[in-house]
Design a protein around this nucleic acid. Structure first.
Lengths: 114, 114
DNA sequence: TATACTAATCGTGTTTTAACGATTAATAGT
DNA sequence: ACTATTAATCGTTAAAACACGATTAGTATA
């Protein structure tokens, strides 16, 4: 059964609070961090590594088929979105998935679109 | 308590099945469709309208502060990702949110990152 | 202090996204 | 058949994302 009722532009559903707009913009920004296959691959690996305790950029390079600088940039983007964190274990870096913020993304999604 | 164990590149967590890679790429593509504030705004409005039965491009224009052609392009992207569907009710179009695929995105997310 | 190793940053070229106005296509109503 | 209305498409410009090689910075160890 199709509904074909059309709603006028002055309907309250079109309006939004400042807070709603902030949340939506925030969600869009986080989604952008998730919008590249290599970054999802990285997160997927880091999730599996979570119990084992981290990961190395140089190891990722050999598995992703991307240049070191490219992988570094993807890691930067994921870190900026706080989906991962980085701890220096000289001379290497130990990247970890940030499960809390992964779940926060889900919550935000539900808050906006459920 | 921090774990600092480092994992070698030949660890099985670095490998992946063809199917996993396809899922990840698919998820990244869907995330890209969600990576713009205007598109989230549109989805949010369409969700609220869901019970009322749809929405009009021209009405959206007046509320989003974007040109008609720009809104049309955002709608095209959302439709391509199957987050919305379009039914012509001449001379207007009736856009609807596709809740099923919204939920499918959540499932995909959980399947990859949980 | 010098060396070796890792990851971040820089500079560059290429591709993709975003936004707009203008035009076109489609259709209902006159 | 003509007009009015709506949304898609086209063409253009500007901005951002992506990828790479080369360089730099930082740190532990010799």
């Amino acid at each position: 059964m199709q509904m074909t009722h059309c709603v006028a532009a002055n309907n309250p559903v079109f309006s939004s609070t400042k807070q709603e707009l902030v949340e939506e913009k925030n969600f869009a920004t986080l989604s952008k961090a998730l919008s590249h296959p290599a970054r999802i691959r990285i997160l997927s690996i880091l999730l599996k590594l979570d119990k084992l305790g981290g990961c190395l950029n140089s190891d990722l390079v050999s598995k992703l088929g991307l240049a070191q600088s490219t992988v570094s940039e993807h890691l930067r983007i994921l870190k900026q979105a706080q989906f991962i964190s980085a701890e220096p274990i000289p001379p290497k870096m130990c990247y970890r998935i940030n499960k809390k913020n992964i779940n926060a993304y889900l919550s935000l999604f539900s808050s906006i679109l459920n």
